[in-house]
Structures are given as structure tokens and as C-alpha cells.
Simulated assay, not measured.
Amino acid sequence: MRVLLCALIAIASFAGEGFAQTMTLKDQLIGTWIYVSSTAKRDDGTPVPRPSLQGAVTYTADGRFHFITTSTNAPKYASSDSAKPSPEEAMAVASQSIAYTGTYTVDEGTKTIHVNIETSTFPNLVGAPNQRRIVSAISADEMKFTNPRTPAGVTLEIVWKRAK
């Protein structure tokens, strides 16, 4: 009986490992990921300074996503009314924040997430063609992807950790 139990546990463990290895990229993406860090480079490889950011991206099983990053140093508004920042306060927040949402598909062969941005705090992204994120690494707890061409003309690499 003990041998049979050990054999069943071994088979279950092996089957579980095989299952994890056969998960699709889309299956692995589903959930919320918390921003860890990012680097930006120009086409010639020159690094571009990045602000200190916080944020998250969520991918749903039905093909929707939500993305937001904002400065960790965003100033508090002098007014308690979020609709009445001073011009300086509004510019400080808007210039270091971005949020967008829409639908996504995954090309498993190229490990590419294709996003269709429907709404954004940066209106130029809405409907912009060829919005893609190339996943360079993904595990149960960490994901790294590259946005190969941002509107600012830089390549952006972002590291995420899975929300717990």
C-alpha cells in the first residue's frame, strides 16, 4: 500500500510539472502584475532616464487588459478637489502617469502580446496600430516584457511581479 501511495504521488507530481510546462503564454499572463522597474533606450542604445514609478497591469481570461503607471513622487494637490489641481500640479501628474485599457491577443509563437487600446490618458494611443509587448521571460512570480517602440521613440523594458 505504501509503495502504491508513493507511486501515485510521484505520478501526480510529474503530471503537475508537465501541465505547468504546457500552459500557454496567455494562461500564464492572466492575473494582475505589479510594476517593479523599467529601463528605456534610444535606437542607438543610449539609456533614457526613467522616473520612479508604481503601477500594475491586469490581463483577463476573456482578452481584456488594464494598465497604469504613475510617479511615486506625485505631488498632493493643494485643493481637496481632484478636478481643481493647479496647472503645475496637473502637469506634474499627467506628464509622469499613463493609463490605458482595451483588448489583447497573444501570438504564442513569437511570445508577443498584441494590444488594442480603446481608452487612454494619452489619446494618441487609442487605436494606434502595432501596439505589441514582447515577453522575454515569464514565471509564476515574474514577467519581463519589451515595448519595442513607444510613442516617444524608445524601447522600453518592464519587469513585473505577480500580485499576491
Rank of each mutant, 00 (worst) to 15 (best):
R2N: 15
L4M: 10
L5W: 04
L5R: 02
L5P: 00
C6R: 06
C6E: 02
L8Q: 01
I9R: 05
A10E: 05
A12C: 13
F14R: 04
F14S: 06
A15W: 04
G18K: 10
F19E: 09
F19K: 08
F19S: 07
Q21M: 07
Q21D: 12
T24R: 08
T24A: 05
K26W: 09
Q28L: 09
L29G: 02
I30E: 12
G31A: 02
W33A: 03
V36E: 15
V36Y: 07
S38P: 00
A40D: 07
A40K: 03
K41R: 15
K41Y: 13
V48C: 04
P51Y: 09
S52N: 14
L53I: 07
L53Q: 12
L53V: 04
G55Q: 02
G55N: 08
A56I: 02
V57F: 02
A61Y: 02
D62L: 03
D62K: 11
D62Y: 01
G63D: 12
G63H: 12
F65K: 05
F67D: 10
F67Q: 04
T69K: 00
T69M: 07
T70K: 13
T70E: 14
S71F: 01
S71A: 14
T72L: 12
T72N: 13
N73D: 15
A74N: 15
A74V: 01
A74D: 14
P75N: 11
P75R: 02
Y77T: 05
A78M: 08
S79M: 10
D81T: 12
S82I: 13
S82G: 07
A83H: 12
A83S: 13
A83D: 08
P85S: 13
P87S: 10
E88R: 05
E89G: 03
A90F: 13
V93S: 14
A94K: 12
Q96C: 06
I98Q: 15
A99M: 13
A99L: 02
Y100K: 01
Y104E: 12
T105L: 06
D107H: 06
E108A: 07
E108C: 04
G109S: 13
T110I: 11
T112K: 03
H114L: 11
I117D: 06
I117S: 00
E118V: 10
E118P: 08
T119I: 08
S120P: 07
T121H: 06
T121A: 15
T121K: 13
F122Y: 06
F122Q: 03
L125D: 09
L125T: 00
L125R: 08
V126N: 06
G127M: 09
G127C: 02
P129I: 06
R132A: 09
V135A: 12
S136C: 09
I138Y: 03
S139K: 01
E142N: 12
M143F: 03
M143T: 01
M143Q: 09
K144D: 00
F145T: 01
N147M: 00
R149Q: 14
R149L: 14
T150V: 01
G153M: 04
T155Y: 05
L156C: 01
L156E: 12
L156A: 05
E157F: 07
V159K: 07
W160Y: 05
W160R: 04
R162E: 02
K164P: 09
